[in-house]
Structures are given as C-alpha cells and as structure tokens.
Design a protein around this nucleic acid. Sequence first.
DNA 1: TCGACTTTGTGCAGGACTTCACAAGCCGTT
DNA 2: AACGGCTTGTGAAGTCCTGCACAAAGTCGA
Lengths: 239, 239
Amino acid sequence: MTDQRDPDDGAAREPKADRWRSVPEATVARLAVYLRALTTQADQGVITVSSEELATAAGVNSAKLRKDLSHLGSYGTRGVGYDVSTLIEQISRALGLTQHRAVALVGIGNLGHALAGYGGFASRGFRIVALFDAERARVGEPIAGLRVRHIDDLDDVVRSEHVSIAVIATPAGAAQDVCDRLVAAGVTSILNFAPAVLSVPDNVDVRKVDLAVELQILSFHEQRKASAGDNDGTFEEVG
Amino acid sequence: MTDQRDPDDGAAREPKADRWRSVPEATVARLAVYLRALTTQADQGVITVSSEELATAAGVNSAKLRKDLSHLGSYGTRGVGYDVSTLIEQISRALGLTQHRAVALVGIGNLGHALAGYGGFASRGFRIVALFDAERARVGEPIAGLRVRHIDDLDDVVRSEHVSIAVIATPAGAAQDVCDRLVAAGVTSILNFAPAVLSVPDNVDVRKVDLAVELQILSFHEQRKASAGDNDGTFEEVG
DNA sequence: TCGACTTTGTGCAGGACTTCACAAGCCGTT
DNA sequence: AACGGCTTGTGAAGTCCTGCACAAAGTCGA
C-alpha cells in the first residue's frame, strides 16, 4: 500500500486515494444517493444535518449512513451533525466528480434519444460529448445541441475528447460489438442498457441497467404478496 | 436453512409458494437474467444447457447459478444439465410471469416517452395499459398505440385495468405525490425513475433506477483506477 | 450389468454488509 | 469550569451471500 499523503493535509482528516479503494461497493452506491439528498438540503438553505435527518432523506438507517461516511474520513461534529457543504464537497471528491467527465452515448434509438436529452446528467457532473449510431440515416440529426455521428467515428472522437465513460443504448445484438469498439478506443467504464451480458477486460467496469429485469423483480414480489395473502395474511416488507 | 419439505411432494420437485418466500433477494434479481439468457438459447434451438454454459451466458459463476436454481426446486439432470424449456417455465412461474401484468406509466416526458415505446417490456411479460401526465397539453397524444390520459384519471384507470405495477418517470418534485396517488389507487409495486426517495407503506415495493447514480458509481471506479495507475500500476477488477 | 464420465445439488467456511449499542466528544448553560 | 444533552464514530455481533469442493445421481458405451 503506497501511503503517500498530500503535502497539505495537516489535519488527520483527509483519507488518501489509497483509502478509497477500501470503500465497500455498497457504500459507494449510497454515497451518490446521499449526495443528491444533500444538494436538495443545500438548495433549501440547510447548513447542518444530523445523521438521522440525512438518513431519513436518503431512505436508509442512520447507523449505516454514519458508517458509510466514516469511510471518507471524519467530517462530522459530535453533538451537532454534519456541515452540508463540507459533506457535499467530500462526497463529490470521493466519487471523482470534481473533474467533470466526458461521456459518449451509443445507440440513438428510443431510449438513447431520451438519455441524450436527459438533464439529470449535466446537473450532476457529467457532460455528454458525443452521440453515435450505426444507422447512416440518423447521422447528422441534431439532439440536445449535438449532432449524431456515425459509429465508425467512435475511435477518433473517444480519443480526442478523452471520453472515459460510455453509455450503450443499442439493441442487444449490437451491444458486444459496440462494447469492444469502445474498449479498444480506451473507454474504461460502461453503462449498459442493452439486455445483454458484456464481456470486457478486467480493467473495464460495466454497470447494467435492465428495465425488464426491474419489472420482473417487482413481479416476483407481487406474486409473493398475493400468495401470502391467500395463505396467512402475513406481509413482510422488502429492504 | 429451513429445510421443511412439503408433505405432499412425492416427486420432491414442486416447491410451494411458501418456499418462494425464502428465495434470497439477490437470487431473484439473477433469475431474471437467467431467464433472458435461456430465451436466447431457446431461440437458437438449444435443448439443454449445463450450469457452466448458462452461467457464462448470464455472466455469473456456475456454483452460484446452481444454488440459485436450487431454490426453485430440482429441475436439472445430473450428468446432463437443464432442459431449457423446463427451466424457462419454472423461472417464469417463480417470477410470477405466467400471468401477464398490467403496468401504468406516469410522466410522459423525455424518458417516459422512451419507456412507453420500449419494446422490451411487452416481449417479457408486461403490458403497458395506460400513460399519464399532469400536463393538459400532452393529454390525448397518441404513443405506441395508447392515448396519454390526465393524471386525475389515474384512480379510475388503475382500478378498472387492475394495474398492480406502476412506473414513475416524472420530475423529482412530483414523484411523491404521484406515488401517493398510485398507492391510494391500489398499486403495490413501483419502479421509480425520478431522482427522489419515495416513502410508501410496508406492503408496497419500490425499486429505484437513478441514471446519474449509476454514472457516479462508474466515476468512482474511474478515479480509483486513475490513482491506482499513478501509484503502482496494479489493477483490480470489480465484481 | 458394470464402470467411466459428467454434471447437479449442497454442506461448509469465509467474506461482505448491516445493525446494535455505547464510549468519546462537542456545545451551550449555569 | 463543570454538567447535561446530543450526536458522532466504531467495536462487536448478527445476517446474508458467495464460492469451494465433493458426494449423489444420472448417461453412455461395451
């Protein structure tokens, strides 16, 4: 473990990049949620929040929230709570949002079109810098201030724009091919909306969002609830 | 492990609804993925698959897959593998997909529009039966064979169409209100795309999909990779 | 019928994450 | 300056999940 500290951190506050590697995956996912809750609070002029308040706003248990935050360092004040702006800053830093990241979007169909126009990305640190599609007919179409480019330009653009994150919104059949091209061009993180399993080198991260899978999970619980009602009327909630 | 067997299962095959309640949440999420992989295989004319093959197709480890399937019962044949169509049937049953479920979609903005037109729902057991929006200007607009209705009609339609699952694709500010209306109308499962935490009664399930959160998680790993590269060049993959 | 081979189903150990419960620490008041 | 009230940060225990490794059980060929 390389334990080089920043020269400037006099206080025992700033856990190094080193330490971030030990942040549990489950915690990382929640940090993003806390961040959203915090920015909402900040917009309302709130200065400090207790773990209890923030936990409620984020929909988790307060002990979990405190443990999550403790992975970033010790930014709370006992008896008081957390300073909202400090926490926003720290979480942003932990998530690597201090540098805006360039994102490419491949597959301008139904969903891709919506994603391209989705405002939630820009407002939270991401900038879509390029849109790609395989269909020539679509190339040139302007969406959200960008022109759709042909996928053959992918390599050039990814390199010149320093794209490290890409979103795949193609049909399932095209996903692996697109993925391979992205990886070859240097993309190291992929958000995949296509209903297909992608295989990538170890150093590339893939996250998958499958809308039908989400509904099927709900369907399972619907059925469970239905039969529970028939059998004994006992309901149990889901985490 | 509660190992109570049904008294009546001579064949030791059919786990009762009772047993489904004990299927781990993590397993449920993967069953949907297996199902997709299986239907792909079936379309290609494959008759049987081994746990190894299916696991590869689904992007998981074969031991995990076998354990997951064992929660449904014993549908494999040692030395041979699993019969594809049997497995499709059993997983579909476990997930409650044998009865098609009516889905309502609220919020016909950018994303809602795309979801309404997304073919992946219908092809996997779900039928969108109604679209709602708060904006009068949008009411009446035809999308994917449906007319957008005003959200004030929500209660009527949900009841008459027996909607049990709803998708929220509204702005964050409207989400809780829409959620409350849905719950009041009898919806018991919600898929939420709005970047907001919903509070619901215990008997209602909510699943959340937040696109920006997904990107932020990727951003975290990007940053981790970057600093790892600076320090020692060691890369570690992510499960 | 037997034996070699294949693949499932699962006990078990280990790891990851959650939750509890409380000592440590900070603030405002007296 | 000491105290009471709050809230954080964290050891420890508990729960859930994963992955190994192997016995059990089936197939196929001779």
